[in-house]
């Protein structure tokens, strides 16, 4: 219920920093409540964990890493060929 599956233009920065983490993948953005693993976060937003790598605050992490509120999470596609998943 914390997922906001679209642009964050109406969301003030202080909200993300204090109460949520921000996930970006290509041109899409999501906000989720922290305290869950990267693998669970991907499942929540409908991304197959096998198809991406997770970079948190600029550092490559494993799928079982717990994501925290305020984290900037970038998903890097690993599937060659422009797969949309």
């Amino acid at each position: 219920m914390f997922a906001i599956l679209n642009e964050l233009t109406d969301t003030p920065d202080w909200y993300t920093i204090r109460f949520a983490m921000q996930i970006t993948f290509r041109d899409k953005k999501w906000e989720l409540k922290g305290g869950i693993t990267a693998r669970d976060a991907m499942k929540k937003i409908g991304i197959d964990p096998e198809s991406v790598l997770v970079v948190v605050n600029g550092t490559l992490v494993t799928d079982d890493t717990i994501l925290r509120d305020g984290d900037q999470v970038k998903l890097v596609a690993v599937v060659s060929g422009g797969n949309e998943t």
Partner: peptide
């Protein structure tokens, strides 16, 4: 390559 058959199979296999 977007949407080609190979990527469809990759998605299934993932």
């Amino acid at each position: 390559a977007v949407g080609n058959l190979t990527n469809f199979y990759k998605t299934l296999l993932n």
